[in-house]
Design a protein around this nucleic acid. Structure first.
Lengths: 109, 109
DNA sequence: CCCAGTATTCAGTGTTGCCAAGTACCAGTA
DNA sequence: TACTGGTACTTGGCAACACTGAATACTGGG
């Protein structure tokens, strides 16, 4: 990434970000990467997103379906399932906790 | 930490948090740990904070002074210097960027 | 003299995002 | 046919980071 700091910050949040993207609608890796790039994560690399997807699939947070593409190899479409929604909810709680503490620290400066 | 998720989220932010604490006033490791615990990071362990302090000292973000304590071994008091303030400012920028993206994602759900 | 509280250090572990390269499939073009 | 470029996924190695657990050291009170 542009900043080493931001890279470290993404650890732990990128997974939640991907889950949140999938919560709006099912998607496949290449698409998710593109969407994140549009949304400002300009330096996000495909390999990173795919690694997250492999992980959340192995942990059973998503259902996977292979869908043929006219433009290339088959897409692996990921759909957030109940388990994933639970983890996403936990992510939001943790994020809000952390954001609140950090906001407080920012005020004190 | 209580949650593995929160642990991962702390990567990259804990350093900023410590810098922010030092920005309010100089402090030593044991004290910082205690303050963070009071502020809600109940499961933060001393070893973790000390590791951050070693790192930011090695990178020249703080000035260090050994101060005798009546209650135990000498304290290493850390003071944020100009270099550290620069890194802290960068942290705030990165944090706000990330928080904005994630907030946006939260709205879309 | 031991114990609890204060205060710091350090080796080892697991998770994570990044990097780089490779594989595979298709359409258009020369 | 051969070549290029865009699409789409996989993988091995690396560095950074927070956590664990244990060790060390200093002080005052029972």
């Amino acid at each position: 990434m542009g900043s080493k700091q931001l890279t470290e910050m993404l650890k732990g949040t990128l997974e939640g970000i991907v889950l949140a993207v999938l919560a709006t609608r099912p998607a496949y890796g290449y698409e998710i990467t593109a969407r994140l790039r549009e949304q400002g994560f300009t330096d996000i690399v495909e390999g990173t997103v795919y690694a997250v997807l492999v992980r959340i699939e192995r942990r059973g947070l998503v259902d996977v379906e292979k869908v043929p593409s006219e433009k290339g190899p088959p897409r692996k479409v990921y759909t957030l399932n109940a388990e994933g929604r639970t983890v996403l909810d936990e992510f939001w709680r943790n994020w809000e906790f952390l954001a609140a503490r950090i906001h407080q620290l920012h005020e004190e400066n």
